[in-house]
Simulated assay, not measured.
Amino acid sequence: MTPPDFTPEEIEAVYRVIRERRDMRHFRPDPVDPAVLRRLLWAAHQAPSVGFMQPWRFIRITDRDLRGRIHDLVETERRRTAEALGDRADEFRKLKIEGIRECGELLAAVLTDGRERHVFGRRTLPEMDLASLACAIQNLWLAARAEGLGMGWVSFFDPVDLAGMLEIPPGGKPVALLCLGHVESFYPRPLLESAAWERRRDLEDVVFENRWNRRAFGVEG
């Protein structure tokens, strides 16, 4: 058995930051230290990627007028989402879904153009570029939590409209708006769980063995 390279305290710190990461919506407007922001983006850039394609690009939104137009774009999609939710529309409208105007930093996470050149690991699963970008976002998220900063992933936008605003070249695609910044406190539980929108599933319900729906843990149902 290979001994761990990290102390028990270091190992626990990793699990703690995973456990206490939250999708944040409430921010203070205090600026983020540029050195910290660079560390967080470094962490994102260390993510694994299929075929080492590194498909992520991050656009820092510093123009206040542009941030306002992005907020309006998100509000448009928020209204459309509410209309599409039917019986849960009023429940959804009560939820805070973003902190675009308040957060210290706003980043757009974008899939780069020219991804079709990368065949390694994507011939049958072309969506692995998206999976790779998601890994970069998660790295950034966990690093932000370790630094005491909150982050929220916003997906309420039309990607074509946002691509136009950000002058993303043809073939590139914005995937997430990342609100990053200081917070008064971290939510004790995921916000949507606290709002009774959904609950976290039990581990036993999502881990199977050998065949679909054959539980790996616990007694067969």
Rank of each mutant, 00 (worst) to 15 (best):
P188A: 06
W42Q: 12
A143E: 10
S49I: 02
G114K: 13
E204T: 15
I61M: 07
W56N: 02
E127P: 01
R189T: 02
V219D: 11
T7L: 14
N139F: 01
D161G: 06
S185W: 09
R22C: 01
Y15C: 05
A35D: 15
H45I: 01
S132G: 01
R123A: 10
R69E: 14
V14Q: 08
L73D: 02
L178H: 04
G218F: 08
D33E: 14
L192F: 11
E209N: 05
D23K: 03
V119F: 07
G68L: 08
P3L: 13
P31D: 01
A47S: 09
F52K: 14
L107A: 10
L85P: 08
D90R: 05
L106P: 03
R64K: 00
M53C: 15
C135M: 12
P170Q: 09
H26P: 00
T62K: 03
P174I: 04
L140K: 00
R78I: 06
D158Q: 13
L178K: 01
V17G: 06
A196G: 07
M165H: 06
R88V: 05
R57M: 12
G68K: 07
H182D: 00
N213Q: 15
P170Y: 05
G104Y: 09
A47M: 09
D202I: 02
F186C: 04
R64A: 15
L140R: 05
W141F: 02
V219P: 12
R25Q: 05
D30L: 05
S49T: 10
